[in-house]
Design a protein around this nucleic acid. Structure first.
Lengths: 131, 131
DNA sequence: GATACCGGTATACTTTAGGAAACCGGTATA
DNA sequence: TATACCGGTTTCCTAAAGTATACCGGTATC
């Protein structure tokens, strides 16, 4: 669930190029897919970005991101939690208060997103310039 | 087509947190989404990896990647071409020979994939260790 | 003359991601 | 007593991604 299924990129010696050792297919691609899975999807990035500015409550996140339904937000937050990237704190107030926060581990995504941003910016310029 | 649609992350001052200047939503997220779009999908990574080992012919790529249908391969190669990441060379042999190759620009993806790999490997260890 | 390879395309189908709307118990507010 | 907010869940539906299968013209092989 949290990590990419081995079988998806199972190696077949007869079919993979000789450059690929049996383990190489797996060890090269699976972790990359894991990282991509965590960041791709329609809302994940925006939710993560929203949380980089501090703790947020459920409805607060939803209001900040136009179009985001509670169903999707709930699903994505659960995934972030399962991956230990965000934490959920319930306070015994009335009505109940729930806060979500990026974990220290979750913050390690920042430089990675930074790299994607760098490459993406250059690409954007290149493609726009071409037209 | 090649780059992420602006409207998807259109900014709404009333709904975004005050930390976000109007331009920040766009300039932060769109390039990241562009980069993710290029790498995500079921086959893109494997095709790119296959091409990092040198020129390849259509059927050759298909044979190397079990389960990949010609329709998907064709679609993905076109996208790589449109993004100037791969080039297509047709040779007037019989039967016709077509070779695909990563462009110099396409090779700039390597360090980015490397970063995803680094983060993903750590994540994989972390999640597996927990169980 | 039949079969197989090349580089694909076309059509129809299934599966997955995401959206719309209604709803839940509990509490506060008018 | 009615309405609204909180943090979600449930159900049903659409749209997008991906799969299966057959097919194309051209050439080479048996």
């Amino acid at each position: 669930m949290y990590i990419c299924n081995m079988e998806l990129i199972e190696h077949d010696k007869r079919k993979c190029p000789t450059h690929f050792s049996t383990g190489e297919c797996k060890t090269r691609l699976l972790p990359v897919k894991d990282a991509l899975d965590i960041l791709s999807g329609k809302w994940k990035l925006q939710i993560i970005l929203s949380l980089t500015f501090g703790k947020k409550r459920f409805k607060q996140i939803q209001r900040e991101i136009p179009g985001l339904t509670p169903k999707m937000l709930s699903k994505e937050l659960k995934e972030l939690e399962m991956n230990e990237l965000a934490s959920r704190h319930v306070y015994d107030t009335s009505p109940v208060t729930v806060e979500y926060e990026l974990t220290a581990y979750g913050k390690t995504l920042k430089p990675l997103i930074g790299e994607l941003h760098k490459w993406g910016s250059k690409h954007r310029k290149r493609i726009i310039a071409r037209k």
